[in-house]
Each structure stands twice: as structure tokens, then as C-alpha cells.
Amino acid sequence: MKWLVEFFGSGIGKKLLMSLTGLFLIIFLVVHLVGNLQLLKSDGGEAFNIYARFMTSNPLIKTVSYGLYFFILLHAVLGLMIAWTNKKAKGGKYAVTASSPNTSWASKNMALLGTLILAFIFIHMGDFWWKMHNDQLPYVTYDDTMGPIKNLYARTAEAFANPVIVVGYVIGMIVLAFHLWHGFQSAFQTLGINHPKYSPLIKGAGKLYAILIPLAFAIIPVWFYLSQA
């Protein structure tokens, strides 16, 4: 197993972990968004709350969610470690900084963007996940067979009535968009996928993803805020 330890100790090995955890988180974002979009259903939150109950009670999903927490932490911690090593490897700064052509701002600021996203995740989880998991939510009953379930919808609606939270959320999504703008295609390059025919497709898809997913996430709080105002 020495070879495996050595592999993950190498620069490329660490980057592979970043790539794989990143891709996992990219998939997770879609799953999360599918759930969130149910907030927009005009059913008083029934679909959303049932979905939320399913996500917190299904044993398989629960297991996956522990993996998720681990991957988020791994991605973040490893990312910061890499940024630290890279900063040291650079040695010094140039007096004049000029951007090379075809390089994005995001690509050079992934650690900063990632740190902001991590902060967002903590606040976000404090707002919703913590309350859900620590029984701080009211209950609602839709159907006798299911019994009373936690009303996460009510908490969401309450939170999104607060302009500070809405603005914070939207900023968080903008940061996420920048992170994905580079991260999506970078993950493929790290995996070694670079092909004259397919890479333009991957890059295009990545940019589309980086705009559409955060945009869809951001629409929800804005819509809630406006519809409650």
C-alpha cells in the first residue's frame, strides 16, 4: 500500500482527489437543486417537505450524505493545503502583474473562491441543516400514513423574507459560479481528459453549468423574497 500513499502524496495524486471530489460535488449540486426547485411549486411546501423528510430518513441517502460531508471537507482542506504549497512554490511576487491571454481570473483565485464557498456552506447549514437535524422546526401533517413531518418549507420562507440572507445567498451563488467556471473543465483536465474533438464540448458544458446551476439556485430566494414582499 506504500505506493498508494505515495500516489496521494504526489502533486498529481492530490490534484486527482481534488478533481474527483469536485466532480462529486458538481453532481451533488444538481441533486440539491432538484430538491430546491420544489420550493417553487405552489403547494404550500408539501412536495418540498416530503422530499426533505425522504432525504433525511432514507438510510442509503443518509450514508451518502456522510460521504458528502467528508468530500466537502476533503475538497476544502486539500484545496487549502495545495494553495499553501503552491504559494510557497511561487517563491515571490512580481512587481507588475499582467494577466496572460486566455487565463481566467477564477482560475487564479480558486482558493479564495473556495474559502468563501466554505463559509457560505457553514452559514447555510446553520440556517437550515442544523435546525432540521436538531428538531428546531415546527411540524406539519399532510397525510396520516406519514404522520407529522418537519416543516422546512416554513423555515425557508422565513429565511428568504430576510433581505440580508437573500443578498448573501445570491452573492454565494455568484462566487460558486466563478468557482465552477474554472473548476468544471479543470476537473476533466486533471483526469487527463483532453481531446481536440471533445474538450471544446466539455469546456462549453462547464461554462453553461457554471452559469445555469447557480442561477437556478439564486432565483429561489429572490422569488421567495419578492413574492412575500
Partner: peptide, 30 residues
């Protein structure tokens, strides 16, 4: 340092060596 796929190397290389070499290296290393 480690590669974060910024692409500045390719842009500044006087011989215009391409980034796909890095993808090749990653593949070969795995």
C-alpha cells in the same frame, strides 16, 4: 507547485507547447 490548470504556461510558452501535454502526463501517471 501543483498544476491548477490556469493555462498561463501555454499562453506564455515561446514554443507554444500545448496544455494537452499536461492531460497526457496525468493519464500516463495514473
Amino acid at each position: 507547485g501543483m498544476c491548477s490548470n490556469v493555462g498561463a504556461c501555454e499562453a506564455e510558452c515561446p514554443k507554444e507547447i500545448k496544455l494537452d501535454n499536461i492531460a497526457y502526463l496525468n493519464r500516463a501517471y495514473y
